[in-house]
Write a protein that binds this DNA or RNA. Structure first.
Length: 282
DNA sequence: TCGCAGGTGGTCG
DNA sequence: CGACCACCTGCG
């Protein structure tokens, strides 16, 4: 299978990127590479470190991709043209907590994911755990998604389109075991079919099954609004432990994030999320 | 058995 | 508004 290789890649660690909670279709392989399906393609991503001990500088290998794929899809998807080194410096300045979080998740990048797939994924994610979210998404793709090119001899499916999902009934999704999220998904698909894809936080938050947390995730990961700061249980945990907030004071946390991190709130959230999950297990 | 998992919608006061 | 609370499902 053909590979595309990018030399001298900085601030890129597959483990950090795919395990900081922003995506659900990338899976770790025994050798530490990650295989995933995005933008209609399935690839395996690996980072070879050129200088020993320098995990944040190396050779990025994308298996099953051409140069054209890279230029058209992966350069943007992996946000390759943004200088995360600069962002990390800025976030770490005068914030010891963030400095440590940035150190632990030094190779995090915010993926530019497909908006509709982000909507579907994060509606499924609510009040749910990550292994089950991943399972639901795979089952949903296999049930109602378009078949993509096989990968390593296995069938691969994309997530169902707006039209497909809008044409289905909640009962049709029973095999996916979405529970009460199934009707949310169908309703949202019909709303999007009617109104088009959302373009602002307000339009996102108007969708069915989308509250403030999910809306911020969609805004951050689907629209790449880097100021969006999703507050979930893990962020509440890290904000109370590290910054002394009351666990229930979500508004206070959001205000703090806006004032301290500003336009970089979403990136800061990812470092914090990865950091607390690293220390608190799971 | 029961609480929990990357919350949300509905209902009250 | 803000505080509750039920809610599919599967796992420990």
């Amino acid at each position: 299978m053909n590979e595309y290789i990018i030399e001298n890649v900085r601030d890129f660690n597959p483990e950090h990127i795919f395990d900081c909670g922003q995506c659900f279709r990338w899976n770790r392989q025994p050798d530490g590479a990650y295989t995933g399906t995005a933008m209609g393609k399935t690839v395996t991503v690996r980072l070879d470190c050129v200088e020993s001990g320098r995990i944040d500088k190396g050779r990025l290998i994308i298996e099953n991709a051409t140069e054209e794929d890279y230029e058209k899809i992966w350069r943007s998807y992996f946000d390759m043209d943004r200088d995360y080194g600069l962002i990390k410096e800025e976030l770490s300045r005068e914030d010891p907590v963030m400095k440590e979080a940035v150190k632990r998740g030094s190779g995090i990048r915010i993926l530019k994911q497909d908006l509709w797939e982000t909507i579907v994924s994060f509606i499924i994610s609510q009040n749910n755990n990550i292994p089950r979210i991943k399972g639901c998404i795979e089952k949903l793709a296999a049930l109602a998604g378009e078949r993509l090119e096989d990968y390593r001899g296995e069938a691969v499916y994309g997530l169902p389109s707006v039209e497909k999902l809008a044409s289905m009934e909640a009962e049709d999704l029973a095999p996916v075991r979405l529970g009460y999220r199934a009707p949310y998904l169908i309703k949202t698909a019909r709303m999007v079919k009617e109104r088009g894809l959302p373009e602002s936080y307000e339009q996102i938050a108007a969708l069915c099954g989308v509250g403030p947390k999910v809306a911020n995730c969609i805004s951050l990961f689907g629209l790449h609004n880097l100021s969006s700061f999703p507050v979930d249980v893990w962020v509440r945990r890290v904000m109370s432990e590290m910054y002394g907030f009351d666990e229930k004071d979500v508004k206070g946390m959001a205000k703090f994030a806006d004032e301290r991190f500003g336009d970089l709130g979403g990136i800061a959230q990812q470092y914090l999320f990865y950091y607390i999950r690293l220390t608190k297990g799971e």
